[in-house]
């Protein structure tokens, strides 16, 4: 079955961000495919490369990246939600003349249309909210 995930919860502020990751792992372990993981609202904070949690706590952006590399996941971050909250890739940093960029590798900024497309082509869309 083809799944897509909508992550609307920010890591550390809400458990939903972690639940989404666990769901993705369980999903892939059963042989299902994940068409896209879409980060929206405060969920975009799950894509920062600058998170530095204590060593005995999970680093969700790093774990998503590792999962994406193993399973070729499409990790898409809502660009409108992201740039408002100061989450930029190199292109957006240049466009807005900001001193740096902080999007974790293997994530991509794109429009809300990527959520609609994911919902259309996937068998199931699961939201992890806050």
């Amino acid at each position: 079955m083809i799944f897509s995930l909508l992550v609307y919860a920010a890591p550390h502020s809400h458990q939903g961000a972690e639940t989404a990751y666990r769901f993705a792992v369980a999903c892939l372990a059963q042989g299902h495919s994940i068409h896209r993981v879409f980060f929206y609202g405060d969920g975009v904070h799950g894509a920062t490369a600058l998170a530095a949690p204590p060593q005995d706590e999970p680093n969700l952006p790093a774990r998503w990246q590792a999962l994406a590399q193993t399973h070729k996941l499409d990790l898409v971050v809502c660009i409108a939600a992201a740039v408002r909250r100061g989450l930029l890739d190199a292109n957006e940093a240049r466009r807005y003349e900001k001193p740096g960029h902080n999007l974790q590798q293997d994530f991509e900024l794109s429009g809300l249309g990527q959520l609609a497309e994911a919902a259309i082509v996937s068998d199931r869309l699961i939201t992890f909210g806050a």
């Binding site: 799944f3 299902h32 699961i126």
Partner: peptide, 19 residues
């Protein structure tokens, strides 16, 4: 368990999250 969560998603035609 987490695998059961995935299984439940497969067994139902749509999933709604209340949060």
């Amino acid at each position: 368990d987490d695998a059961g969560f995935v299984q439940l998603c497969c067994e139902h035609t749509r999933v709604i999250s209340w949060y």
